[in-house]
């Protein structure tokens, strides 16, 4: 594959892209701090639960249930 441009110029572009990427990550972090993403860490872990699927409820029982050991049930 023929080179489009000399390596130093390509390197310069890549360094700029890298700096831009680093800046982007830093802004993402600062934005997260400012928008209080790290403020209340104890409640963040509960974000995946809700009233229908609360803490304490298993949500995958393809192999059966602890109480009944019954995995298959005929549909009515």
């Amino acid at each position: 594959m023929a080179t489009l441009m000399p390596l130093p110029l390509a390197g310069l572009i890549l360094i700029l892209v890298a700096l831009l990427g680093g800046a982007m990550a830093m802004f993402a972090f600062l934005w997260a701090v400012r928008s209080k993403q790290f403020k209340d860490l104890s409640s963040g872990a509960y974000a995946i639960f809700d009233e229908e699927e609360p803490v304490g409820k298993m949500t995958d029982n393809t192999f059966g249930f602890p109480e009944s050991e019954e995995s298959t049930e005929k549909r009515d």
């Binding site: 860490l41 963040g44 872990a45 995946i48 609360p54 803490v55 304490g56």
Partner: peptide, 18 residues
């Protein structure tokens, strides 16, 4: 997502995860 969601228990230390 799936470990806490399936067993129904939040991540042990959310701070550590971040």
């Amino acid at each position: 997502y799936f470990i806490p969601k399936v067993i129904g228990r939040p991540i042990h230390s959310y701070y550590l995860s971040l």
